[in-house]
Write a protein that binds this DNA or RNA. Structure first.
Lengths: 134, 134
DNA sequence: GCAAACCCGACTAATTTAGTAAGGAATGGA
DNA sequence: TCCATTCCTTACTAAATTAGTCGGGTTTGC
């Protein structure tokens, strides 16, 4: 259960955009600032845009910016977009004790707890926390 | 960031042992009850024993049981044993802004939050919650 | 002694991760 | 109008991880 590098990159890019909320920043510039491979970041940003967390401007002088203010975007949204569900192989239709299945409730409980935790932290929190970094 | 099947198996086995806290249960029996491949479970149990969460008895009529009462074992311990750290590639010695590195603090904060959450749930909680399963 | 059970390391197939590569489409400015 | 810039999309690949299997060894109760 580790956070993938892909998600780390996505979080860092989102936090960088949160720091300059008013500007449009290109992938090239973001990749340079955060030392992330450009073509990889391109894919990540596309996913975040499709998920409705970013908006893009195409063409020259184009780039990305947050679709909502930093305080309105949680890291839960970012992580869920880039990682998908927490659960492993799901208890499917072949599970004979579907209703009260204890396995299901254990994983669900863990998933709910973690989701709640991550939804409780927004980008603004992280910008403030990491403000001293340069 | 998904919980591996390996960890799910480990959690289920630990919960099963928590239900019969007084008995010694063999891997064969545990594997049957929880429908987990026996030789795979064997490896998982060995890891949990090495981590100090289980104790084993060798030879005929041997098996495993929890080293401590269910209320004293958290799922954080189980998950950490079986999954290892949450973090991806760590911010190593080549990171030029080691001290105030914002990346580091972001991942650390996420990791701390999740760890706290998982350490707040013990095996007894889960036994009670899943008690209706059969 | 022998069967039941844990113990241990090596091996493998399938999947996921972390990218790279190549080209297409939109757009601002000269 | 042209063209450099920038986003957009799909396809591919090497390395790592996951989910096991396999074959043997050791311990112990009966």
């Amino acid at each position: 259960m580790r956070v993938s590098l892909r998600t780390e990159y996505g979080l860092r890019a989102m936090i960088a955009l949160a720091r300059d909320f008013d500007d449009i920043v290109s992938i090239k510039e973001l990749a340079r600032r955060e030392a992330i491979p450009g073509t990889f970041l391109e894919q990540i940003m596309a996913d975040l845009r499709r998920a409705g967390l970013l908006e893009s401007t195409r063409g020259a002088q184009g780039g990305y910016r947050l679709k909502n203010p930093p305080s309105r975007i949680t890291i839960g949204e970012v992580v869920e977009t880039l990682e998908g569900s927490l659960s492993p192989a799901r208890c499917g239709s072949d599970c004979e004790r579907q209703d009260g299945c204890s396995t299901r409730s254990v994983l669900d409980r863990i998933e709910r707890s973690i989701t709640e935790t991550l939804d409780g932290i927004n980008l603004e929190d992280l910008v403030v926390e990491g403000a001293t970094h340069e």
